[in-house]
Design a protein around this nucleic acid. Sequence first.
DNA 1: TTGAAAGCGCTAACAC
DNA 2: GTGTTAGCGCTTTCAA
Lengths: 347, 347
Amino acid sequence: MAATLHDVARVAGVSFKTVSNVINNHPHVRPVTRSKVEAAIAELGYRPNLAARSLRSGHTGAITLAVPQLKLPYFAELADAVIAAAEARGLVVLIEQTGGNRERELEVLSSPRLQMSDGLLFSPLGLGEEDAALVKSEVPMVLLGERIFSGDCDHVTMQNVAAARAATDHLLDLGRNRIAVVGAHDGEVIGSAGLRLRGYREALAARGIAYDDSIVAYMWSWHRSNGAAAMRELLARGVTFDAVFGMNDTLAQGAMRVLQQAGYRVPEDVAVIGFDDLDETRYSLPTLSTVDPGRVEIAETAIRVLLERIMHPDGSAPQEIETTFKVVARESTLGQATVPAHPPSGS
Amino acid sequence: MAATLHDVARVAGVSFKTVSNVINNHPHVRPVTRSKVEAAIAELGYRPNLAARSLRSGHTGAITLAVPQLKLPYFAELADAVIAAAEARGLVVLIEQTGGNRERELEVLSSPRLQMSDGLLFSPLGLGEEDAALVKSEVPMVLLGERIFSGDCDHVTMQNVAAARAATDHLLDLGRNRIAVVGAHDGEVIGSAGLRLRGYREALAARGIAYDDSIVAYMWSWHRSNGAAAMRELLARGVTFDAVFGMNDTLAQGAMRVLQQAGYRVPEDVAVIGFDDLDETRYSLPTLSTVDPGRVEIAETAIRVLLERIMHPDGSAPQEIETTFKVVARESTLGQATVPAHPPSGS
DNA sequence: TTGAAAGCGCTAACAC
DNA sequence: GTGTTAGCGCTTTCAA
């Protein structure tokens, strides 16, 4: 059995409250007493019991992060950033996967397991604006992402419209003005796809370029294969374009691969830009230009806001926070690295 | 304030122990009493307090998973599988990132936060065989991965040697016998790289093919860029090969991209196989042949073994468990899908 | 089949 | 400065 406060107190020859004072850095403890207690703690290898502390204090030192799936690179990197930000404040992160499924998302919101944490970082995918009223939890919550904007809780999101507009501007600045889009969601207004498409259209409009729906590829899933399929389809249709805006990096990579496979040079024939700044975009060939939507900032801000809310549940009104983004121009728009031409002469 | 057992008892007109009995499905409760209690629970929206329950029962219903970084695709997919397997048994997963750093890994092993969970799934990267004695924790632990084999705790690992041998055999069966390796670690004997290289050598030896160190690319980091760089280097050296075995999928993808960029057809000129069966291998062009090392099985087995250890801390002797693997042959070795040749005629 | 009582290890008033 | 005293909400003997 592990040592308790009482054991330490007995060994140190003080009352167990004094031990508690030492542990919690209470000011009024005589140095002599303190060191006696510390010696006893070391001797017994005492560790405070976290369950007891939670029961008493009402908080756990953990937060929950609910995301669709960790195997989707965007969410893996988001989780990575959230865990790092939480760790910096001494919090552990408990992860729930919803599969982007509406039912599971609602389930997580009312799960008793939320009690194991002091607050929730919730990134819905199945739930939408129409479900805003259902998005309530027994612990303080910060909403992430672009599915729900009208909830009455704190919300941290990226500047989808402005960032997409900047990405489009980057292509336009390079002299491309037939910019295909890969990954639009038909009829969506809010949500990543809807907002990003809006940014794209704004950029075109600002330069007096007509929007051409024939170079916009619609789809409902954002896997790499969808980007590839969409590009095959665009090529098959014989439409004209000199650039591609992938609504996320994965789509852009898929589209880029098909372009290259079909014999087009990136960026000489077709420039490609993505969205998300996933780690892998740094390593593709050519490296992928993209938009860094401020993922680390999202994580840090979300944690900060959540902690404030945990400490002051009835503090200020819910905030809507947008992170800063930046266009990351790499080889897929600016020009690519050269590759040695020696033949392997095998086979 | 949330309702407690006492509140429920008062409303139901029974003692609070009876309520506890109902909640824990104790057998001897009269149906009438049970439904009265259930009504009261529903009326008050009662949720058992998990902290109190942990304090009393000594277990938390959570487990900790410690991995290097979630932004590394392999660990993201491992975490995904672990969370899914844990969820199926009603457990939550708490994630610690070690950065693959030896100090941080030791820190996690002795972290008080481990107490928030009933057990640890530990995937070290910085610690090695020589540290086996340090790998101890206050909670039951299952070791994952190929860094440490001599610890005295349960260990779940993939069949690195056999799987690498099978991957090599797959290439040999296709008539390739100049198989370059990307990702060897110089001098490593155990560890993923060391073991997989051994499998490769065994496969060659079994067919009487001499091992040629000049087509083995060494490196210490396994990012996509390293695979690309290694392939550039191999091409620049002008060595002869007709296939590539990437020690993991990321390396293989990087190498494959450089090959294609340099004008080689995959698999016609050079066949490529990876290792890990990451999700993305299904979506590359061509799709990447690889080895499924049994990630889902690793996750499920690890959880099962950990739970056994939690329930019977002094049960049987520590087990060493290897999962089943299988070669997943895709286009990068068998032949690739065709791509429409219509020109975008842009720019 | 149900109830009473004890106590898990800790924090926080409040007294000394 | 240090000690005493109550609980936090639950599970678990044990008795009725």
